[in-house]
Structure formats: C-alpha cells, structure tokens
C-alpha cells in the first residue's frame, strides 16, 4: 500500500502543466491574448513609415544604410518580446502569486518551485512568440508588397532570437516580481522598462550619445536584444552577437534561479 512510485518526468514535463493551466484560463477569454499583437505594428506604421518618410536612410555601423522602417522593425520585435514577457511575469505572475494564491495549492503536489518558475517562463515565451510570429508575418507580407523590410535571409533567425530576448526578460521580470510587495511597486518596474524602450538604440543609433553613455546603454538587456535581432534582419552579423546571446541567456537563467529561491522563501516558510 505504501509502495511509492518513482516517477521521473522529463525536465519540462511538469513545467508544461503550468502552461496547460494557463491555457485553460485563456480558453475562456482567448481574445485578450491578441491585445499585445498590435502595439509593435502601430509603432512600425507610425514611426517607421510615418516619421521614417521625414528621416530618410539610417547608417548602419558597417558603412551601409537602410530605410528608417527597416532600422526600427527589428527593434520593435525585440521590444514586443520584452513587453510580452514582462507583462506576463509582472502583473499576471504577481496576481497568481499574491492574490489568487494558486501556487500555494500547487506546491502541495509533486510540482516543485522550479517547475512553477520554468512553467511560467515557458508560458510567457509562448505568448511572446505568438506576437513575434505575428509581427514577422506582417513584416514579410509588407516585404512581398515591395517595402523590403527583411533584407537578409538571416532574418528568419529573428524569430528564435526574439525568443531568447523573451527568455531574458521573462526570467528577470519574474525574479523582480518576487520582490514586489504591492501593486504600485510595478511603477518602478515601468520606470526601468520605458526608458529602455526609448533609449536602447531602438529608434536611432546610439552613436548619438557621448561614449560613457554609449557604454552604459550597451549594458542594458534591451540594447543587446535590439543589436542581436537587427544584425540578423539587416544581414550584418558579427562575433558580438555571441555576447548578446550569452548575456540574454545568462540573464534569463539567473532570473529563473532567483525566482525559484524566492518562491521558496515566500511559499515554504
């Protein structure tokens, strides 16, 4: 009667159950999911084509130059990955952690805290990748229409790269959320997200800054994400992309590790 089964699930089997739980929730209101789809497109149309018409071409580091829309499209993709990941791991995660208290019930099952953290990151990534795919499809269609937003076959790698950006921000966002005590603390998070969105080489090259500020901006995660995706979509990759990848993957993984530890403190006192 007391023989205890030794069941060894694959590493992502149990985290996937968190994804399934979230899918059940969104089955009731799946249209909400698509809300995040339009934001980067609106930016692309207003800034890329609207403002872009006034600006002309933007020089890339390697001496070539591209239209303004081509310049900002990869940055908008990176930003939408960031926003998708942050939205899911800030407000939504906080609600589940502190208000709905769903994890209190989940930790009474064989699911571990790491399973919970990984599962929520998986979910954030899935949601984010939906937006990335949507954005890339729109960009590709515009490309077919002769607007030429994708100038390199490497651009296809923009999708996995957007996932990596999403991973970095999901891990970091979730870790930050475990320190949040009340809703208004999220204003501080926005205080970090908003300037990153505006100033990380998203809308103009960072050569505009004095060297010290350039160095600082290069250390921000969104800059690394924009740099990575832009190099792929404009066909100008170099070895520094490895720094981007290492940075983003490390950020996501450290965030996950901190989240697991913090959940232990919060839920298993």
């Amino acid at each position: 009667m007391l023989a205890l089964r030794t069941y060894r699930p694959l590493p992502l089997t149990r985290p996937a159950r968190i994804v399934q739980r979230n899918m059940l929730v969104y089955r009731h209101s799946f249209m909400v999911i698509f809300s995040g789809f339009f934001e980067p497109l609106f930016y692309l149309f207003s800034m890329g084509f609207g403002v872009g018409a006034l600006i002309g071409n933007v020089p890339l580091g390697n001496g070539s130059s591209v239209s303004y829309a081509v310049f900002i499209a990869p940055a908008l993709l990176a930003s939408s990955s960031m926003n998708g990941a942050i939205y899911e791991t800030s407000n939504n995660f906080f609600y589940k952690l502190k208000h709905a208290k769903i994890y209190d019930a989940i930790i009474a099952t064989p699911m571990s805290l790491t399973d919970v953290a990984r599962g929520e990151v998986m979910w954030a990534l899935m949601r984010g990748s939906l937006y990335a795919v949507g954005f890339i499809v729109v960009v590709a269609v515009l490309g077919l229409a002769g607007l030429g937003l994708l100038t390199s076959p490497l651009g296809l790698l923009a999708f996995p790269a957007a996932m990596v950006v999403g991973y970095a921000f999901a891990g970091a966002g979730m870790a930050a959320t475990t320190f949040v005590r009340q809703w208004r603390d999220f204003d501080y998070m926005q205080l970090a997200i908003m300037p990153m969105f505006l100033f990380s080489g998203t809308f103009y090259p960072i050569d505009a800054y004095p060297p010290a500020l350039q160095a600082f901006v290069q250390c921000t995660p969104l800059y690394r994400g924009v740099h990575l995706i832009r190099a792929l979509t404009t066909g100008t990759p170099d070895a520094t992309l490895l720094i981007d990848l290492a940075y983003l993957i490390a950020l996501g993984s450290i965030g996950l590790a901190i989240t697991s530890r913090r959940l232990g403190k919060l839920l298993q006192s």
Partner: peptide, 29 residues
C-alpha cells in the same frame, strides 16, 4: 506529496478556472 492529500485552512482554489477544471488540472499536477 505524491501520496498525500491536503485540505489547507484557506481554500486556495483556482478562481480563474471552473469547478471541473480545478480538479482536471490538479490531477495533471
């Protein structure tokens, strides 16, 4: 925990899910 059933003091039900779904997903856990 595999062999344990827990009824905590506070209800900790998943309010975003239906009655049946609460049980379904818990079985998945």
């Amino acid at each position: 925990r595999t062999r344990l059933g827990v009824v905590p003091q506070a209800d900790t039900l998943d309010n975003e899910l239906s009655v049946l779904e609460n049980l379904l997903i818990y079985g998945r856990y």
